Computed example of a mutant assay.
Amino acid sequence: MNPQKVDRDRVVALTDLPNIGPASAKDLRLLGIEQPAQLAGRCPYAMYAALCDQTGVQHDPCVIDVFISVTRFMAGEAAQPWWAYTEERKHTLEQRPNQPTLNDLSAINL
């Protein structure tokens, strides 16, 4: 859903979350997340690593941005477009000395 249209009081389904459409909701369900409340306390980098592992595909890193946006939203932050987190993700991954592997991503604690 467009972050500007999100009403925190009406978030019931995954697609009620900012930046989550049907495809992203399907990805979340692959991770065992059926309800928005299940995102609380989750690490977006670990979620991304698990998604890549589960599907056998290296997904676009922008998926991390989407995961950051929804985990932060569920932690109480204002809804933001996913690209608001791109620089943060790039900075976080640049802190790794080599190209991050899936294991590196799942070890990042935020």
Rank of each mutant, 00 (worst) to 15 (best):
R72W: 07
R72T: 11
L102E: 06
L102P: 09
M1E: 04
I108V: 10
T101Y: 08
I68T: 01
A78I: 09
Q99H: 12
T92N: 03
A49P: 03
P61E: 14
R29F: 05
G56K: 12
P36K: 05
L110C: 05
T15G: 01
P97F: 13
R8M: 09
A79H: 11
V12E: 09
V57N: 06
P3W: 04
N19P: 02
E94M: 14
A75V: 04
E87R: 12
N2S: 12
C62V: 09
K5R: 15
N103R: 11
S24I: 12
P36E: 03
P3K: 03
K90E: 10
G21W: 08
E88H: 05
T71D: 01
A13W: 11
C43M: 13
L30I: 14
L17T: 00
A78K: 15
Q54S: 08
T101K: 04
T86C: 05
I64C: 00
L110G: 14
G76E: 14
A49L: 05
M47Y: 04
Q35F: 10
V66I: 15
K26G: 03
D9S: 15
P97Q: 07
G32N: 08
N2T: 04
Q54N: 12
L31E: 02
W82F: 10
G76P: 10
H91P: 00
N98E: 12
P81K: 02
H59V: 09
V63T: 14
Q58P: 01
T86W: 01
D9I: 02
A84R: 12
P100Y: 03
V12P: 00
V63P: 00
L17D: 10
D16F: 06
T92M: 10
C43I: 13
Q38D: 12
N98Q: 15
L30Y: 02
P3H: 11
L110T: 11
P100W: 09
N109M: 03
D16E: 12
Q58R: 02
M74G: 03
N98F: 08
A84G: 14
P44S: 10
V6T: 02
V6E: 05
I108E: 13
K5E: 15
C52S: 06
D27R: 06
P36N: 13
P61A: 13
Q95W: 02
Y48C: 05
H91W: 02
T55H: 00
I68K: 07
P22I: 07
N19E: 07
P18N: 08
P18C: 10
A37E: 12
L31G: 01
R8K: 15
N2K: 11
R72A: 15
R96H: 14
Q99L: 14
G21D: 05
E77Y: 11
G21C: 07
L110D: 13
K90Y: 12
D16W: 11
F67S: 00
W83M: 10
L28C: 02
K5D: 15
W82V: 02
V70G: 03
L51K: 02
I20E: 00
V70M: 05
G32C: 13
I64F: 01
T101R: 12
W83S: 06
T101E: 03
D9M: 14
P18Q: 14
E94A: 15
I68Y: 07
L93C: 01
L31N: 07
